[in-house]
């Protein structure tokens, strides 16, 4: 089975210069925990709800003044849409993540693949990813 058969193609994005408070509000309104950070067509990073908690709130910064680019993750784990789901699971395990950005060969983002998506294809693969990733209680 290929990544593009089970990935989530709804990609929600923000911009590097948005404030983290605005990004948190967006995550709230559309019920997501992760936004892609886009500079025009280009993927420049990923921002999660946890990033805002740990890098803004925990450190005493003001979310109204902290920009997304200051705390986003720029080293984004990716896979290709036509890759097999087994390979994608391996990438997750190696990178110790539960979500991959799916990018085409022109580096355009076409979707996301999460461990939840993986579970719909194979319980075994999804479980392996959970087992290998840093426990996160």
């Amino acid at each position: 089975m290929k990544v593009n058969e089970i990935m989530n193609t709804k990609v929600q994005s923000t911009t590097p210069l948005a404030t983290t408070k605005e990004a948190a509000r967006q995550m709230h309104d559309i019920h997501v925990g992760c936004l892609t950070v886009m500079e025009g067509e280009r993927l420049v990073g990923i921002l999660t709800d946890r990033d805002i908690c740990c890098k803004v709130t925990a450190t005493g910064r003001d979310a109204g003044f902290t920009k997304v680019h200051e705390i986003m993750t720029t080293d984004v784990a990716t896979c290709f849409p036509e890759q097999g789901v087994e390979e994608a699971a391996e990438i997750m395990m190696k990178a110790q993540v539960r979500r991959l950005a799916v990018v085409d060969h022109d580096s355009r983002i076409t979707g996301f693949l999460s461990v939840d998506d993986l579970a719909r294809a194979s319980h075994q693969l999804a479980s392996s990813v959970l087992e290998s990733s840093t426990t996160y209680h």
Partner: peptide, 19 residues
């Protein structure tokens, strides 16, 4: 997941997605 991949997989499929 450490005890049963089937149980863990079923929980993930049923869970509210946070994408």
């Amino acid at each position: 997941a450490k005890a049963s991949s089937d149980l863990a997989g079923a929980v993930l499929v049923a869970a509210t997605p946070i994408h």
